[in-house]
Design a protein around this nucleic acid. Sequence first.
DNA 1: CCTAATTGCTCTAGTGACTAGAGGTTCAAG
DNA 2: CTTGAACCTCTAGTCACTAGAGCAATTAGG
Lengths: 138, 138
Amino acid sequence: MFSIGELAKRTAVKVPTIRYYEQIGLIDPPHRSEGNQRRYEPDTLDRLSFIRHGRDLGLSLEAIRDLIELSHHPERPCGRADAIVAEQLAAVRARIARLKRLERELDRMSGCGGGHTVGDCYVLRSIADHDLCASDHD
Amino acid sequence: MFSIGELAKRTAVKVPTIRYYEQIGLIDPPHRSEGNQRRYEPDTLDRLSFIRHGRDLGLSLEAIRDLIELSHHPERPCGRADAIVAEQLAAVRARIARLKRLERELDRMSGCGGGHTVGDCYVLRSIADHDLCASDHD
DNA sequence: CCTAATTGCTCTAGTGACTAGAGGTTCAAG
DNA sequence: CTTGAACCTCTAGTCACTAGAGCAATTAGG
């Protein structure tokens, strides 16, 4: 049996976040102590770590909810789990591509050292005038 | 003089977003027609394009607000503008690095083709057990 | 000049995934 | 038994929009 603080420490999920997950039905409401404080069974550790890890992997709470639902039916084919991860992988790859374009752009903009004034600041002109961009970012 | 719809078309910023920008003081309230509709001077085009471009580059509205403030004082040194962009560049690079770790992880997870069931799904086990991860993503 | 379609107006509330704070209660250590 | 940390609920705030209701103004066609 863990208090919510214990659980938070062990899973690296913050206390208010745990309460939030309970509120939106992502984890089951636990039993309470005589004084109405939450007391968790050990298996909540796994559930919460699963959520945490999924979040770290960039999954939405909705996707995680789906995966949890899925894991309650071990006999079903797991194509849906594959699909969720594949989707996320594609999203991650797209984000990387986009960020790389931005990186090039920002790098180019930040090239001009200090010493000059706002009046002829390359950074500001770059942002003001998209045409100065080397590539199409976005 | 542009209507808000015209402005939206020319800057690729949506109508409600323009109103939102006005509401938070990022663009000045324009004159109104007799019937209380917004009528914009051509220079709003530049301002809005600047905001749009900044957003595309990943800048927060706060950062953009700073840059606009800055551009009203052309005589000042522009170190602050440089700093904002440098900060953003560092953030983008960090995000890229993190996403690449995630990409590796997701790619590894999604390797196991379909046909099997949820009960022994590698994807689900991977998320459940961080120790299965090849690298430390995050 | 009239009508219909489009565009505009304000205002409120919702999104995702939390985070912060107020104001009070319970628990565990000494 | 006292103290201080941890807990409780509830509301509201964050960011950058987005959606919808219910109405008013503008514009194009006939």
